[in-house]
Amino acid sequence: MTPEQSPLGRSADYPAEYDAALLYPLARAPKRQELGLAGATPFFGADLWTAYELSWLNPRGKPQVALAHITVPCETPNIIESKSFKLYLASFNNTRFDSLEEVRARIRADVSEAVWRGSGQSASVGVRLIAPEAFDQQPLHELDGLLLDRLDLECTHYTPAPELLGANHDEAPVSEVLTSHLLKSNCLVTGQPDWGSVQISYSGAQIDQAGLLQYLVSFRNHNEFHEQCVERIFMDVWTRCRPIKLSVYARYTRRGGLDINPFRTSAPQPLPANVRTARQ
């Protein structure tokens, strides 16, 4: 399966009833090979999805709604193409389920099968459903860290330019958390804009902040899926700046009722909380 064969950019009727076959997995390997990655990767992490448009019918035909948090480990061989995920969730709209727990279990089983498909392996993704009575408990918080966007500088590159990255290896190592709201890329297939905020946490030689911001801006006209952009950022910083530890976390604005928030880190650690930002 290729991105060009996916539902992206094509007219599609909304499904009348539940259909797990709507999920369209895409292999991670081709894009990782572009980054020089084969086999084990130098990072851990996951893709944190939020679904805001989840609804189904209870046994009496009354509509139910919920928010869904779905966690897909980056070790899975596949990602899910986002429009297919939207259509899959829409297939719940006119289908009756006995309970919220049944819906959660069905999403968990279907997404788990799709992201591991063709690998000969299996494991479960994480799925958490939030019922309406808990909606007002959902927090909103911006990414913590020093904002790179405060810098007044000239930007001239709008396709990824890793040569802009640098670090001072002559001074003592530091630990920093740097953020920016200026990340923008485009969908690999449709060219539609994807807007995001990014957080880069590292220990090691101090990274040149001006160069890092110019580098992040350089994704502005780049066509790639969210997960692939974050892995590209991670690998460029990892190879160009050579930190001791590195984490890259991006939160993208939603499209089609879904947001995708990839997290990659060089050292195993707890995943960040799936907390939306103001733009999401």
Rank of each mutant, 00 (worst) to 15 (best):
T71N: 07
F234T: 07
L151Q: 02
P270E: 14
L140I: 12
R254K: 12
R96P: 03
E102W: 05
T50M: 00
R279E: 07
A172H: 13
P173I: 09
R60C: 13
P7N: 10
L165G: 04
G39E: 02
W49T: 03
Y14K: 14
L22F: 07
L26F: 05
A273E: 15
M235C: 13
F263N: 01
V103T: 00
Y249M: 12
R251H: 06
D259A: 04
V189T: 12
P3M: 06
L151R: 01
K245S: 15
P15A: 12
G118A: 03
E75W: 12
G196V: 07
L213Q: 01
Q33T: 13
P193V: 11
L147M: 14
N221K: 12
E113N: 09
K31W: 10
A131R: 10
G191S: 03
I79C: 06
L35S: 10
P193F: 10
A210T: 13
V237C: 01
D136C: 09
N93L: 01
P132K: 15
L246C: 06
T239S: 01
A40S: 12
R150S: 07
R264M: 02
Y215S: 02
I80W: 06
F234A: 02
R10V: 08
P30G: 09
P268E: 04
F135M: 01
A51W: 10
L148C: 01
Q192R: 15
R104M: 09
Q199S: 09
L212Q: 03
L22P: 00
L146F: 10
F92A: 06
A29N: 07
S203H: 15
K245D: 05
V125M: 09
G9M: 00
P73C: 00
R96T: 10
E163N: 12
R232I: 04
V115A: 00
T253E: 05
R255M: 08
T277S: 13
F234C: 00
V230N: 03
W116C: 02
R96W: 04
I70G: 02
N186F: 07
R150E: 01
S197W: 01
E171S: 15
L48H: 11
L22M: 04
N78M: 08
Q33F: 03
L37N: 11
D110P: 05
P42G: 14
D259R: 06
C241Q: 00
Q121D: 14
D259F: 02
Q5G: 03
I130T: 11
A167G: 07
R117C: 05
P139G: 06
T71L: 06
A46N: 09
S99R: 05
L48R: 02
G191H: 03
G166W: 08
T156L: 06
T71F: 01
F85R: 11
L35A: 10
L271V: 13
T95S: 15
K62T: 14
R106A: 10
H169M: 14
S124F: 15
P272K: 10
V111I: 14
D236N: 02
V198M: 11
T239P: 08
N221Y: 05
P173F: 08
